[in-house]
Simulated scan of single mutants.
Amino acid sequence: MPADIFAKRRNDRLLFFGALAALTAGSIFITNYDPVAGFTSIGKAFVWGASNFYPNARALTKLPDIALKLRDTILMSVAATTVAAIFALMLAMVGSRTTRINAVFGAIARAIASVLRNIPLVAWAMILMLAFSQSQLTGFLALFFGSLGFLTRAFIETIDEVSIHAVEALQATGASHTSIILQAVLPSSLPQMISWLLFMIDTNIRDATLVGLLTGTGVGFSFDVYYKSFHFHEASLVVLMIVITIICIEMMSNYIRRIIL
Rank of each mutant, 00 (worst) to 15 (best):
R9W: 02
A125K: 00
S96K: 01
I5E: 09
L68C: 15
K69L: 10
L170W: 02
A125E: 01
F132T: 14
F230A: 14
R58W: 07
L130V: 10
A103M: 12
A37R: 04
N52H: 05
A25R: 14
L70G: 12
F232G: 05
M126W: 09
G220S: 05
A109D: 02
N204R: 03
R206M: 04
G212C: 02
L63D: 04
M200K: 11
T73A: 11
L116F: 15
N118V: 02
R13D: 08
Q171W: 00
V83N: 08
T40S: 06
H165K: 06
G139V: 10
K8E: 06
A79L: 09
L261H: 14
A154C: 15
F140N: 02
T81L: 10
D4A: 11
A111M: 14
L198I: 13
L128F: 04
T209K: 00
N32R: 08
Y226G: 00
D207S: 07
V36D: 07
T203H: 13
I74F: 11
I86E: 08
A22G: 13
Q183R: 13
A19V: 14
T245F: 11
A45C: 10
R117W: 05
L170E: 04
F145K: 03
T152Q: 05
I244P: 07
F145D: 04
L182C: 08
F46H: 13
T173F: 03
Q171C: 06
Y255C: 09
S114I: 03
L14Q: 13
A19T: 12
F105G: 15
P55L: 05
H233E: 10
Y226T: 02
A59V: 04
L210H: 01
D207M: 04
A80Q: 02
V115P: 01
Q183E: 08
L148T: 01
I259G: 12
R58F: 09
A80T: 03
T217M: 02
E168P: 03
A84S: 12
S114C: 04
P64C: 10
R258V: 14
Q136A: 07
